[in-house]
Design a protein around this nucleic acid. Sequence first.
DNA 1: TTGATTGATTTGAACGTTCAAATGAATTCA
DNA 2: TGAATTCATTTGAACGTTCAAATCAATCAA
Lengths: 339, 339
Amino acid sequence: MNRTTLKDVAARAGVSHQTVSNVLNDHPSLRPATRARVLDAIRELDYHPNQAARALRQPQTTTLCCVFYDAAPVDIADPYRNLIQSAFIASAQAHGYSMTTAFVRRSSPEDHRALRSAFLQQRFGGALLIGSSLSAEQVAELTSWQLPAVLFDQQLPGSGVANVNADYAAGMAQLVAHHAAQGRTRLALILPGDDPGSTALERRQGFVSATRQRGLDAQIVEGDWTAASGEAAFLALWQGGPKPDAVLAGNDRMAAGALRAARQLGLDVPQQVAISGFDDFEFARYTAPTLTTVQVPYAEMAQVAVGLLAGQVGGQATNELAAPSQRRLPTRLIVRESA
Amino acid sequence: MNRTTLKDVAARAGVSHQTVSNVLNDHPSLRPATRARVLDAIRELDYHPNQAARALRQPQTTTLCCVFYDAAPVDIADPYRNLIQSAFIASAQAHGYSMTTAFVRRSSPEDHRALRSAFLQQRFGGALLIGSSLSAEQVAELTSWQLPAVLFDQQLPGSGVANVNADYAAGMAQLVAHHAAQGRTRLALILPGDDPGSTALERRQGFVSATRQRGLDAQIVEGDWTAASGEAAFLALWQGGPKPDAVLAGNDRMAAGALRAARQLGLDVPQQVAISGFDDFEFARYTAPTLTTVQVPYAEMAQVAVGLLAGQVGGQATNELAAPSQRRLPTRLIVRESA
DNA sequence: TTGATTGATTTGAACGTTCAAATGAATTCA
DNA sequence: TGAATTCATTTGAACGTTCAAATCAATCAA
């Protein structure tokens, strides 16, 4: 249990503890011979610096925190969150950071307090804020905690916080164009509400302007990103009045539900109705029919987001903050069988 | 930037710093009046204890680490890992712990070194070890780092390490019984290799004994848990000689691939061939036909695993270690359309 | 030769908490 | 009443690192 410390290494190498510290933080002025001697001692004693002690002196940790804001308690099966969460962790590890995750119910003051407390107790090196519709005040509070932050999949103009997004509006426009090219004229979109700055809003705006531009019939029905809501929304469309000849689900998960609903109704997809998704998750290749969708480069976006944070943490924080990065990555239409 | 410390609170409350510490760690002997006064001061100053300083004194942190051992670089789309990872994080948060995740390529000495280093540098409160086929030596090394550990989805008899599993053999037996009840006589199982202690081995053994017991035709073909491998394995089965009338995929993901292969071959499922999965992930309800599978209570298992760790960390570590918990949760057959 | 300058290393304090021991006040018992 | 016991609180050191300043040795310009 008695771990070896800086002093043990120093004794072994015949130098002072500070010299060992200098080696660890590769200080510029160090004689190569000394450095080598210290490194030998470190290896021989199998020394590993105590991060707690290090963190006590330094302003920030080498740990990042990614925060998921959700309306409900976390949905552990959500492929969107799961995918980007894993991508974040993998990217952080590649950058030499470790990553912790926090789930916050958006309407729970208790969760907010717990998060705030965690941020003040652990001194994270940075934070990734995911999940639609953070308010300006919330972000202001977060940034007031003095740590570098990156917004993911959320726009907040004028907040001065870096953010990473995909070009959702363009993706939606491509998708509408594709449906139109297939001769579809009556489009329905399943999508959650339009919180400002959210990806939902961008997808909605892309849909609205693209359909308007082409003079297509367009309607929007409510879904909440879940498969069940996609199924319910599709069924509702077929109970109501004028039926669309193409149903665009706002994400792949709702599209899976829509496909299931169409199958229940005995509809032929894509003959009688086209169905498309958005995300291009793995299962989109394994539905029947396979799902036409828009590919969002989530893994790459996650890398960019962590890279921004790592860069900020690395030192030139002020530079970055002065001109916060706004990164927007392209989406890509993936045509399969369903549309 | 100047944060408030114990001493600030002490000054405000008119007590010594140690008394504040006692309040924080709710020491038994404390006059209610004093405690209240200190709590007031804490609230008024918005004090949050510095975890780094706390970690420096105490032997372990309030952070857990879950380690995924994989053959390949992490597959960020893997629903199995994603699901349990999220469940771990959520459970840890509910227990007041934070959770970091590490990905280790099983064959990479570099990754092992990095993990070891991380374990020695950060003093995690405990570790969750996931992923098949850790060797006894590996586990011995891990436990030699003196922190509580729980093996997840892996058996290692005699290792003295707590573990959490589902009853995979029984689940597989139920599944075989179901296929037999439907009149199937020639069963094929798609499954990865049989590393000792792995869930793959348990599933395999359940399959072998159940088919033998019933005198059914049985064969096993290789897959690697991915959908693509399930698809390839299914196609290979149909190229070879005697065709099965039921294909059991070792997990839902491979089952998705098998369904896709059957569709490519123009086979009617379940008329011409039954297909079943294992896991009961969300998409199993959204394939066409919907997937008959075995439900594994991963979320619950994760809660149990974190609970064991939290209990160990909480203090009675020695007790737990003396009689390491072996928890095995039941599985449940879910009959849908595909079999 | 000497004083100034640079480079390499050491010394001692500090970070904010908890532990161990010491103190003081209040209660109990003979 | 006084000693022993318990409870409540305080004091000072310690955890293992980094920072700031101090020291020492070596090089350089005058």
